[in-house]
């Protein structure tokens, strides 16, 4: 009985002492687990990146023609966030972009697809914790990207803009034809109907290939083109510079300067020049 009481008292004192030791150790333990958990997020994020992000953003985030590089310095030094007018943190930007995708491309880029939505909250496949893992993985490029690693150039095509005197690359009329019929949608108004001036030669007017040369000679011409080609480019990217008689302004979409790339403009021009 005596031994029981002594043993029990010692056990009680031991338990209290152990509790005090644990209390002292708890902050360090919690911190240690937090660090290891954050590291495991990066591991898990890397796995998700391999299967879902790599096809567009490239192995190790180096970028491909389908998607911009992510291991570049300007993403981590704030330049990029300033350029796009993002007021939150980089983590927030990544979280938002990965979760909800991008509705419009970044100015000056023309990747063929927008960033899709990845969070299950936005119709994507991933749970919120998986999104966090990918964010952690992308953030982990920061150290190397900021430490002066060679930033990868943003690839993807250059946009046309509204400069009608710009030098165009070689164009391919066949590619232009498919652009006009498909992605750019010119054919709907200019070939298949007469919503806009027809490209074919009709009613005494020559085909669109020659019409530019005639227009710039006319007295009521209000644009800046000095050649037939420039006139045609102007008609695409500065739609309202000269509105042809019998048509209203703004019927032709006015945002082609932002939608069409330099190369596509060249293809389109080559195609239009086949309408003699």
């Amino acid at each position: 009985m005596k031994y029981y009481v002594v043993g029990g008292t010692l056990a009680f004192i031991g338990a209290v002492a152990l509790l005090i030791v644990m209390t002292a150790m708890e902050p360090a333990r919690m911190e240690s687990f937090t660090r290891s958990y954050e590291s495991r997020q990066i591991e898990q994020g890397a796995l998700i990146f391999e299967s879902s992000c790599l096809p567009c953003h490239g192995p190790q985030g180096g970028g491909t023609p389908l998607g911009p590089p992510l291991n570049r310095a300007d993403l981590f030094n704030g330049e990029y966030l300033t350029a796009i007018g993002w007021s939150g943190t980089l983590g927030d930007f990544l979280r938002s972009t990965i979760s909800a995708g991008r509705a419009v491309p970044t100015e000056g880029t023309n990747f063929p697809q927008r960033m899709p939505t990845w969070s299950e909250n936005f119709g994507g496949p991933f749970r919120p914790d998986q999104i966090e893992n990918v964010v952690a993985y992308v953030m982990n490029w920061g150290e190397r990207a900021s430490a002066g690693a060679e930033p990868t150039e943003i690839t993807g095509d250059v946009m046309m803009g509204s400069d009608i005197f710009i030098e165009l690359p070689e164009g391919d009329a066949e590619v232009g034809e498919s652009l006009a019929a498909g992605e750019l949608g010119c054919a709907a108004c200019h070939i298949l109907s007469t919503v806009g001036p027809p490209w074919e030669a009709t009613g005494g007017l020559p085909g669109m290939a020659i019409r530019g040369d005639i227009r710039i000679q006319q007295d009521n011409y209000g644009g800046n083109a000095t050649s037939g080609d420039e006139y045609l480019i102007e008609a695409v990217v500065e739609t309202n510079a000269h509105v042809v008689e019998g048509f209203q302004p703004d019927i032709m979409p006015t945002n082609f300067s932002e939608r069409i790339t330099l190369q596509d403009m060249a293809h389109l021009l080559a195609y239009i020049k086949t309408f003699e």
């Binding site: 240690s32 660090r35 290891s36 954050e38 590291s39 890397a46 796995l47």
Partner: peptide
């Protein structure tokens, strides 16, 4: 398997 230095 991606292995982080601090995953502990």
């Amino acid at each position: 398997f991606f292995f982080h230095r601090n995953s502990d």
